[in-house]
Design a protein around this nucleic acid. Structure first.
Lengths: 340, 340
DNA sequence: TGAAAAACGTAGAACGATACACGTAGAACA
DNA sequence: TGTTCTACGTGTATCGTTCTACGTTTTTCA
């Protein structure tokens, strides 16, 4: 209702009122707001005092009309994986002393939905966009980067020119996992990957797995299964692996909660972990650490990834055009699921 | 940089261009956009065609200046608890066929940060706000509700007049948990609650626990411990409970992942679950269902909560002023952690 | 002391969409 | 044929902020 809306909006202090209260021009207040050049300390103090006194808060819509909204868009694939909480912690730390805010959107690991979310973020004038675990093509990403500063986390494209990337070295992470399993005495090592729209992280992890297997002289038993994120699919794939003719004695899973489900299936089939089958996950989320789970996993420093991505996107907003690709080394955290 | 920004913005199709292309007035296009009264089918079709042809997308900032932004703000306490994914699913389902989008913010279970996030959402002209697990006072919530349509999830205040609430019956949930434990043969039942800013959900769950204990004639052994969400605190509290003089033979935990940590601590202390100590969680998140966790929990239909909250906030946006309080009954899901 | 440069302040035109107040064509009715 | 409705379409002021272009004051330096 127009009337209700009017009532709701009224009471909001505008830049004009602040200017009047401080006895300066509207533009001067705007300069203080934006930390722009050409403001004396005295004037700044006067304006700040008025803003505090009146409880002034700039309206993002109005700012967006000509300038920035001071809002960053963060797109994540889903809310079920607690790994993203680590990234978010890093993002928030990076934003601590700035006037930027984050708004999150969920792509549900679907590139169609992801496109929708990103477009809606562009419509809402996000100053920059951080895309986690994107499944979009280089061209799509370039199209986005044309419109807004863009940084991806978990998307390998070291030759991308128009947007920055932040990654852990997924290939090395998978390699660490395989080496660890080999060292623990496992030899028939399978990998459980993600089925669906191709993702560069998965490609890297699969490549690392292959390299690890070949390096250990196990090239002949390379065995990559895959399943969607739906639990029924995961169970089905795990059963097929564990009941098939080439039953593996260890499984490297692309992410932790898949690994936990695989442990469940193995237990139901009467297999002991780690004696009969070793399991390794990825992301080292908090659930790995519970005594009853105790899952060996690869840590990729989510907090650092979030921090760096935020730094990069703000640099882009401030005018950097040279591309930057940040990579952090992974680290294996051994737990009971591979300790035989 | 101004130049870069200009380049970024250029190329965006405005309502004026659509109007010109369709050979109608700007206001007519606006009406089509808003499904407003006074547009013939022929005109609507013509305008829609032009919008598609030119790839027009309305700019939220500009819309926000006078009308709506068609954006809903959703504030959640943290990203670690997969329960919120269920709520989000419900929200997205409810928004499926509308032109609304959701933007999420994180309050980190701190009422100071929550205030900041909510204010920033008001600055960004969210049409309505859904607050999950708020720790704010009635007055603060009323202040928000004065400015924007507000619905809370997980905040009990059945006499609130200015905003709607959506809840499961937490008191009954806790009661179900205690009854289940008593029926399973446990008698020294403790509760592990959340330490920190007082929350009405916790108050309800504690009350349900008390009622259940008294009902079973165990009023004399009521024992409520509490810990923050930090894992070290949880471990400390769990150890103190399990090593203390009045060692309980069952613990009801306020949320699942706390329960999982308590199982870990119990295991480390050489106690068997469920034989020596029974454990019940709350929320029935996916991690309960893993064979090695197998945690008995209370299900509160997160998806339904999200759906209803979204329905209510949109009704408010469309002018409803009468308050509505929605409550869904909880359901106990028994698993191995209490089956002795 | 004077000229040039630096440091500030100001007015007012954008930005894109909305919604109000009007204007008008056509239908319905007598 | 004239009158009254209804169902639309149109022009434009307006929202709150940014930012350019310009004007004024102060500082610097030879």
């Amino acid at each position: 209702m127009a009337r209700g809306d009017e009532g709701r909006r009224s009471g909001r202090v505008t830049i004009r009122e602040v200017a009047e209260d401080a006895g300066v021009s509207v533009a001067a207040v705007s300069k203080v707001l934006r930390d722009a050049y050409g403001v004396s300390d005295a004037l700044r103090a006067k304006v700040r005092a008025s803003m505090d006194k009146l409880g002034y808060r700039p309206l993002a819509s109005a700012r967006g009309m000509r300038g920035q909204t001071y809002t960053l868009g963060l797109v994540l694939p889903d809310l079920r994986n607690p790994f993203f909480a680590d990234i978010m912690t890093g993002v928030n730390n990076a934003l601590e002393r700035t006037q930027y805010q984050v708004m999150m959107g969920i792509s549900s690991s679907s590139s169609k939905l992801e496109t929708g979310v990103v477009e809606s973020m562009i419509d809402r004038q996000m100053d920059g966009i951080i895309l986690i675990g994107s499944t979009e093509s280089r061209e799509s990403l370039n199209t986005i980067a044309e419109k807004k500063p863009l940084v991806t986390i978990g998307h390998h494209d070291p030759s991308a020119e128009d947007f920055d990337t932040v990654n852990n070295n997924d290939q090395q992470g998978a390699l660490l996992a395989v080496r660890h399993m080999v060292a623990a005495g496992y030899s028939k090592i399978a990998m459980l990957s993600l089925q669906g729209e191709p993702s560069s992280i998965l490609a890297e992890r699969e490549m690392g797995y292959r390299r690890g297997m070949i390096e250990a002289g196990l090239g002949g038993t390379i065995n990559i299964a895959s399943a969607t994120q739906v639990m029924r699919d995961v169970q089905f794939a795990a059963r097929r692996l564990l009941q098939g003719p080439r039953r593996p004695d260890a499984i490297f899973c692309w992410t932790d909660f898949i690994a936990l489900e695989v442990i469940s299936v193995a237990t139901e089939l009467g297999l002991r972990v780690p004696e009969d089958v070793g399991i390794v996950g990825y992301d080292n989320t908090m659930y790995c650490d519970f005594a009853q789970n105790s899952l060996t996993s690869i840590d990729q420093s989510g907090e650092l990834l979030g921090l760096q991505a935020t730094r990069l996107v703000i640099e882009r907003i401030n005018g950097r055009t040279a591309v930057e690709h940040f990579v952090v080394p992974p680290r294996l955290v051994a737990r009971r699921s591979t300790s035989r």
